[in-house]
Simulated scan of single mutants.
Amino acid sequence: MKKELLGIWLVCLLSFSSDIFAAKKMAIEYPIKETQGQIFYNKSFTSTVTGVTYPYHVYLPSGYSKQSDKRFPIIYATDAQWVFNKFVQDAEKSQAQIIIVGIEEGPRRSKRRRIDYTFPGVDRYLQFLSTEFFPNIESEFRVDSQNRTLQGASFGGLLALAVLFSKDNSPTMFRHILSFDPSVQYQTKHLQKRINEFATSGSSTQVNLLLTGAAKRGNNKAVMKFASWLKSKEIKGIKIEAISYDVNHGGISHASFSQALQKILK
Rank of each mutant, 00 (worst) to 15 (best):
T78M: 12
E241N: 13
S139L: 05
L13E: 11
I98K: 02
D144N: 15
L150W: 03
P31Y: 01
R112H: 14
L60N: 00
R113G: 02
F133S: 05
T131D: 11
A77C: 08
A27R: 14
H249S: 02
A227N: 00
I99C: 02
T172I: 14
R71Y: 15
R114D: 04
Q95A: 09
L161R: 02
N196D: 14
T46N: 12
Y59A: 06
A153T: 13
T212H: 04
T53I: 01
A222W: 05
K233Y: 15
F16R: 07
F128E: 01
G63Q: 08
N196I: 12
L191K: 11
Q89R: 15
I235D: 10
A242K: 00
V223E: 00
N196W: 11
S18N: 13
S62W: 13
G250N: 09
I28P: 05
Q95K: 14
A96E: 10
N208Y: 08
A153N: 04
L13W: 15
L10D: 11
G51V: 15
V247C: 03
S183I: 03
P73C: 13
Y117I: 02
N248R: 05
A153S: 05
K236H: 12
D79H: 13
F119S: 11
G218F: 00
E29P: 01
S201R: 08
P135N: 09
F174R: 01
R124W: 14
G202Y: 10
N136W: 12
A96S: 14
V52A: 01
K225G: 06
V52F: 03
G51I: 08
R108L: 07
P107W: 13
S44V: 04
N85L: 01
Q151E: 08
N248Q: 08
R148E: 15
S201Y: 06
K111L: 15
P171S: 09
L261R: 12
Q36V: 06
I28C: 12
L261K: 12
S17T: 02
L164W: 10
S130I: 00
I240G: 10
E132L: 02
E138M: 12
P120G: 13
V52P: 01
L191T: 08
F21A: 03
I240F: 04
I98F: 04
T149R: 06
L210F: 10
N196S: 11
F155S: 06
F87E: 10
I240Y: 09
E92L: 08
F174W: 15
D19R: 00
R112K: 10
D123M: 13
Y41H: 13
E241S: 12
R194I: 00
K167C: 10
W82P: 12
I240D: 08
S130E: 04
K221W: 03
D123C: 03
E29A: 08
L60Q: 02
V163A: 01
E34G: 11
E138C: 07
R71W: 03
Q36L: 15
T188L: 04
I243P: 04
A27G: 03
R71C: 15
S183C: 08
R113L: 05
F133Y: 14
S203Q: 10
A227D: 00
R194E: 00
D90K: 08
L164N: 06
N147I: 11
R194H: 07
F72C: 05
Y64R: 00
